[in-house]
Design a protein around this nucleic acid. Structure first.
Length: 460
DNA sequence: TTAGGGTTAG
């Protein structure tokens, strides 16, 4: 029988990483059986991990064939399923967990390695939130309370944060005696990504309280919140901290800094960060193109889009949103149309409602309202409120009453409470001195019980 | 004894 030490160095294991097809996988599986490696947990775990990436059904059949699989093997497969399948196979991960938690064998009992990946999967999709909360009860049941595991604790904080239960996440965090860097980062990211008011301020407060040295991930959360708050100096401080502490200007930090500087109106600094980055992915380009677009540098934005393509990077859905809107803001209609059509024809990306929204904006702003209207009629999905609002805006710019009224009619069906829509239509009427219609629009607002909040000056 | 948690743009 193969000794455990040889089982780790066996040539079969080297082959595993090179396996790409189900046929390869079956060949290696046969070799593992014939060489006796199938009696050892380590090669089996490697095989299970690989099989889950190539053919999940086959991976599950391997597990079924193993007599008395250890919890280690279950854990390997559960975490592989979660990380390789983007949480689309969460039901299989939970089915395996149920086998572990209901096992009568003393050798098979959930341990601290079982839970983190399940909490990650549970937080991903709302349909699993309930199961994640039940899993929390299992943690209390199956794990020794004296041995608080930092991974389980961090996973729980992350799970509640992803469920939108920031209070629970915070309360669990506060009970952790010495949170490590990853746990701090989980909480910082939770607040930075939260839509709740005050959450960005909380990131700033937490950052000051950090008991461990922040790393790049901590700075990404801080910079993101500074960008949302328009806190230029806070963001600049984070940038200086990065440089002084020899941290890496990686793609995540770089992208968030580009976004921060763009939002604060410092396009030169954004460009400087972009140029200083050693490696740039599509997201970095998207952030820089977006910055150029909102500041009206359409030509430069398109140049950058071309550079992205020439570098061999693959544009994604966001690339097309930012690039087409760059064309829209700079009146580069033909370029925008060309890029929109290339989306599907060249890159195989099916345009979504936001891309049609950009297209309608592109045509509408330039006065091609007829074409914009045709585009709305032909688009394969229902136009959303943003799209109609953009069309209404274009109608206002070009004084097109009829299309403005059509847009408002659709908008009322989608978002009655938004007073801005009535104001846009009212402005169209005012622009052509149709004061009776202005009055009628105001009446319509009253009928629909929509209130326009009065403007408030912040200057004392 | 080999495994497990955190990050970007729209």
């Amino acid at each position: 029988m193969t000794s455990p030490s040889t089982s780790k160095n066996h040539r079969c294991l080297n082959l595993i990483s090179k396996c790409i097809s189900l046929q390869n996988l079956k060949q290696i599986h046969c070799q593992i059986i014939t060489t006796g490696l199938s009696h050892h947990t380590y090669p089996l775990s490697k095989l299970l991990h690989l099989s889950s990436t190539v053919c999940l059904t086959y991976a599950l059949s391997i597990l079924r064939q193993i007599q008395n699989p250890s919890v280690f093997l279950y854990n390997t497969l559960i975490s592989s399923i979660v990380s390789n399948h983007n949480s689309t196979k969460t039901h299989l991960a939970f089915a395996l967990y149920n086998q572990v938690s209901s096992s009568r064998s003393n050798l098979v009992r959930p341990n601290e390695f079982t839970y983190p990946s399940l909490f990650k999967a549970s937080g991903f999709d709302p349909i699993w939130h309930r199961h994640g909360r039940a899993l929390h009860a299992h943690v209390l049941k199956f794990l020794e309370p004296v041995n608080h595991d930092r991974f389980v604790e961090a996973a729980l904080v992350g799970f509640y944060a992803n469920c939108g239960r920031l209070r629970e996440a915070r309360s669990l965090f506060e009970r952790i005696r010495e949170p490590d860097l990853a746990t701090w980062n989980t909480l910082l990211a939770a607040y930075a990504n939260s839509e709740e008011s005050e959450s960005d301020d909380e990131v700033l407060r937490l950052f000051v309280r950090m008991q461990v040295r922040p790393n790049e991930v901590s700075l990404v959360a801080l910079i993101k919140s500074c960008a949302s708050l328009g806190e230029f100096w806070g963001g600049l401080w984070a940038h200086v901290y990065l440089l002084k502490n020899n941290l890496t200007l990686n793609q995540f930090v770089g992208t968030s800094l580009i976004d921060l500087y763009s939002k604060c109106g410092c396009l030169n600094l954004a460009r400087q960060v972009f140029d200083e980055m050693r490696e740039r992915d599509t997201s970095c380009y998207n952030a820089m193109i977006r910055g150029l677009a909102v500041h009206g540098f359409g030509e430069e934005a398109i140049e950058l889009y071309k550079s992205l393509i020439s570098k061999g990077l693959i544009p994604d859905e966001a690339t097309f949103v930012v690039t087409i809107s760059a064309c829209s803001h700079s009146g580069l209609v033909d370029e925008g149309l060309h890029i929109f059509h290339s989306m599907k024809e060249v890159y195989g990306i099916e345009p979504k409602v936001e891309h049609y929204g950009c297209l309608v904006d592109l045509l509408g702003r330039s006065g091609r309202l007829e074409e914009a209207e045709q585009c709305i009629k032909k688009m394969p999905m229902k136009p959303n409120a943003t799209l109609w609002r953009s069309f209404l805006g274009s109608a206002q710019i070009h004084g097109d009453l009829e299309r403005g009224e059509t847009a408002l009619k659709h908008l009322l069906g989608l978002e009655l409470e938004n007073s801005g829509n009535f104001v846009l239509l009212s402005n169209i009427y005012a622009g052509v001195d149709r004061w009776t219609d202005v009055e009628k629009t105001r009446e319509l607002m009253k009928d629909h019980r929509v209130n326009k909040s009065p403007g408030i000056s912040t200057i004392n």
